[in-house]
Design a protein around this nucleic acid. Sequence first.
DNA 1: CAGTGGTCTAGACCACGGT
DNA 2: CCGTGGTCTAGACCACTGG
Lengths: 240, 240
Amino acid sequence: MIDKNSPVPIYFQIEEYIKSSIEQNELRPGDMLPSEREYAESLGVSRMTVRQAFTNLVNEGYLVRQKGRGTFVANQKIEQSLSGLTSFTEDMKQRGLTPSNQLITFHLIPGPKNICEKLEIPEHSPIYEILRVRLADDSPMAIERSYLSANLVKGLTEDIVEHSLYEYIERTLQFSIGTATQTLEATIASEEDADFLHVDVGAALLGIQRLTKLENGTPLEVVYSLYRGDRYKFMIDLKR
Amino acid sequence: MIDKNSPVPIYFQIEEYIKSSIEQNELRPGDMLPSEREYAESLGVSRMTVRQAFTNLVNEGYLVRQKGRGTFVANQKIEQSLSGLTSFTEDMKQRGLTPSNQLITFHLIPGPKNICEKLEIPEHSPIYEILRVRLADDSPMAIERSYLSANLVKGLTEDIVEHSLYEYIERTLQFSIGTATQTLEATIASEEDADFLHVDVGAALLGIQRLTKLENGTPLEVVYSLYRGDRYKFMIDLKR
DNA sequence: CAGTGGTCTAGACCACGGT
DNA sequence: CCGTGGTCTAGACCACTGG
């Protein structure tokens, strides 16, 4: 169960083991775990190593510690939905819907001023403009306009865009996405919107603007989305 | 600077000292801190103790560690705006607007089923129902319907509600607010909504539902709000 | 009372970054 | 090469919980 000679840190191996035990329901919410000392002895490692694993899992919301009592499996993992920076694809899957795309336009254009400012690149720099209708269970859910710097995200093709852009960025380009600033507002469907989304003119739409940055702070993507008000709710957990 | 005989843990004292150094601009974003070993020696404590303080500050977004280089003051404390659980009053002040209230109704009623379920109390338990129009710079911004258990939030009066409910809950009752689950969706103004908000029927409104819980997990408040789409945007920072 | 998590020590070796 | 953070050890005493 634990490989001391692995390059993977022991505390991380312990974390993974406990996480999978929880996910496979071998450990249920409210269950008490073996004490830190028991764990340490049975694995033949120091108590501090076990403690590091436990601490991380507490911070991630999997476990709860109680002084003088023990360590327990948390009732609900709050962090799961908290501050989730997800792609449309991931978001829909989490909701139990099947996502798909309908690519409307895919252009390489000289960047307009307002976009370039947000991406922190010179005006007129080459930019990919991607217009997609996002479908869930084959029915329109949102319109999405994305802008990415062509000098940063190289080798973008229609194929990639129709599949999953985030997967390409994270898996193939090995970029690690950091944070995003997002704005939500309510608007009304114009004639063009109504057309794409199969709703009436004047229907309620949820407008979402997002600026995504990499972990090193480089702006990655500007996205303007319009979600159907009758099909989409945005959920978020907040902490005081 | 550090009191070893204090009941306050050493790592916590170190945290507070570093935090205040950052807040008073003695340490600026990008500055490198003394190494863990230097800190430990100069304070006469173990390196692991310093490390615990550093680790907590990294998790809170104050510091950034770089393998082989050092520990640095973070550029921007993301957590500041991230996942901000704020009251309407706080929210408006942050935006530079002056908040005020117009109390429409304030009733003590037997709780309807759906509300009581969310508040995790028996059906028909006494509940305060508060209906307010929220103003910013004396112009309508939102309609808010709040529900609170009268057995939990005692001594509520019209005066308190017209001032600031959260202040009463946190300052006077000494409750500490923990987390909230929030849902946002786009809707259309009904005739009644339009009346309260001074907008046209069919105008875009941002509907926000919130369930707030105390730190011990007790549900505190259910709120249904309708914000004017032309005046209000909801902003949030997300982490991957 | 025994067992738990909370804090702390004084070392150790490693992988990494920059000189 | 040296200094950094990353990991790990084998102890220790404390405050708290429960029986």
